[in-house]
Design a protein around this nucleic acid. Structure first.
Lengths: 356, 356
DNA sequence: ACTTTTTCCGTGTTCGTACACGACAAAAAG
DNA sequence: CTTTTTGTCGTGTACGAACACGGAAAAAGT
């Protein structure tokens, strides 16, 4: 049983013959390079339609020495193991796959603490005049300036990680943070006994995209508001400015001691490992802990059983998808999705080894 | 910042010049087509090594009119919505991506109830003499015969869904059922109160690969054996031969009524929807239900909140990966993983919409 | 009516690789 | 010593599309 019989590449020659014109004329029409009279153009187009002509991409890229250059504008990873290395892995994989099509990728990094570096790098990108751009619109105002410049030059851009509404983007690749918060809530709700409390922990120092954290928390609360049967549970929110500070750590342990009915903790960002270290150091037990992102520190505590769940949004895939989206749009000239939410994955000790 | 500067394709011409031979001789060496004296071959090979030559795949496939044909041998889907349609989706996607490289895919289906159909189709595949084969080794004995024939002809084969050990396979793409059972156990353990019982349901009629079901159950029990803290929970196993039969249905409801402490149910295969229908019809509530596979019937009950978790193994991806593995091995001549476990995903009402 | 410009179209070459064909020499067979 | 076979190697063309170049025809300008 055949899905499709063979490669579809009915000959241009046939078309040229049928339309009674030269081969050159036919490909002028195909690449609408003008220089063809409307009469013959229409005639040829009709014939092409009939024959379901589909150009051979390999021959095409081979013949055209045209190269594409994509520019990336992402936050600089704060450490070799931190979150923003992950999208880069996906970018590299995508590059390996499509480099033979003449695609070049330039990575520009900005400091999350300094909007000026964003502007500098954005300027460099504009100067290099790439065919497409992938950016994390970390700084809202600066990003808007940047994309208005891109729009002026008709350079398509893809958002990664966070979104800007009504921005004529080519695509958004990222997570739905609200929904991920809801999911975390459900897991904790299921995992702790009735009549217990849940602690929501905000490690606010890392400004690793604040909006996400807010959305996650909203989703989390939303769950408990709509699921009245779980309403018996009390939620306590705590903001920790600096998890490395001992005073702040005491803040957490005090909270746990004074509220022994706390049976679940939700950490809104990737830094659940700070909490896990704290718990490991004391003899507190029986508390379900849920955090985000599969970074090495968290993996260790997941294996030890101190962290029970990690919610993960496939950052590698986001990087990969962003590049591939540009590629599909520019080279393959395919339609691409305007919004592309990556899946929200639940990682436990049990399925960790098989997560990719 | 550039990852890699450009496409690596240092000219053959340069090599030829350096080695003081003709271009023809150089590519004879590259494609080791014999017809070259050992002396010059060695000289050229050394120069190639120095220059890190890498052939252009596009030009290569363009020039060689060689086509590859891959054969698939999979169980026939029992209905348009059933499990075995999913791998097919992935196969189609893979085909779309690689068909331009001259790859043709032939799908052969056998009946899960009839080993003879397996043999017939296997024979057809042997006759068609494909370059590579993907098969689900559903019938152990018949599969072994088939692969010994393939081995004789040096046709590489990839197992999908289930594995045969020590079989010189190119690769195995599939799930780790045992681990998926462990995961299910953890989720149920977390979700039900202490001192309650858990019902393990085997819908044994669908022979949709029995070995998987056994493995899942083993993993499930394993979890409760090793996690002694959860040992307070009692496990009850029930085998239902025909879930459409009313007597069998009563068997389940009786069990639930006589054991009101049952607060969690684990269905070992994809047919959790039978149980969900039963629960929906009665006024039983407060029972956590976990099943497998994201088929349409199950999705409905997941949304309704009757089924709480579905464990899913990305069957589409399995189909996709199987084809791509053959492609990478035969066309790209890359190293491929001998075993490739797909990830074990947890789906709930909350993350369902984002699952791909 | 003439030149100049514009529009239209056919031919030829190129991209990087594969491979057929034939040339020539050396080795084997007659 | 001739004929046949085998082993080496160079050249030329093809794959399917892109595009430069230049010629012919049509339109515009004088």
């Amino acid at each position: 049983m055949n899905i499709i019989k063979a490669i579809n590449r009915t000959r241009i020659k046939d078309i040229a013959q049928k339309a009674n014109v030269s081969i050159g004329t036919v490909d002028r029409v195909i690449h609408n390079r003008g220089e063809v009279s409307n009469a013959t153009r229409d005639r040829i187009l009709r014939i092409i339609d009939e024959m379901e002509y589909q150009p051979n991409l390999m021959a095409s890229t081979l013949a055209s020495k045209k190269t594409f250059s994509f520019a990336l504008l992402l936050p600089e990873p704060i450490s070799p193991e931190s979150y923003w290395n992950k999208p880069m892995v996906g970018v590299r994989r995508a590059f390996q796959e499509i480099q033979q099509y003449g695609i070049n990728i330039n990575i520009h990094l900005f400091k999350q603490s300094d909007a000026n570096t964003f502007n500098t790098e954005a300027g460099k990108i504009i100067d290099s005049n790439p065919e497409g751009v992938v950016l994390a619109p970390f700084f809202s105002r600066e990003s808007k300036e940047f994309i208005s410049e891109l729009k002026k030059r008709a350079i398509p851009y893809v958002f990664i990680d966070s979104n800007i509404k009504d921005s004529d983007k080519l695509s958004y690749i990222g997570q739905n943070s609200f929904q991920s918060g809801t999911l975390a809530a459900k897991l904790l709700d299921f995992s702790v006994p009735e009549n217990s409390s849940i602690l929501v922990l905000h490690f606010a120092k890392e400004r690793d995209n604040m909006n996400h954290l807010v959305q996650r928390e909203k989703g989390f609360y939303e769950y408990f508001n709509t699921n009245l049967s779980s309403g018996k549970k009390k939620l306590i929110t705590l903001e920790i400015s600096d998890p490395t500070d001992i005073a702040c750590q005491n803040q957490i342990t005090d909270q746990l001691k004074s509220n022994p009915e706390i049976k679940g903790i939700f950490v809104t960002n990737s830094q659940v490992y700070y909490l896990a270290r704290l718990i490991e150091g004391t003899n507190i037990s029986g508390i379900r802990v849920i955090g985000h992102d599969l970074i090495n520190e968290n993996i260790d505590f997941l294996k030890k059983g101190i962290v029970d769940f990690l919610i993960c949004q496939r950052p590698e895939e986001q990087g990969y998808k962003a590049i591939i989206t540009l590629f599909e749009h520019l080279v393959l000239k395919k339609e691409v999705n305007n919004e592309n939410y990556t899946s929200i994955d639940i990682i436990t000790k049990e399925n960790l080894d098989y997560y990719k």
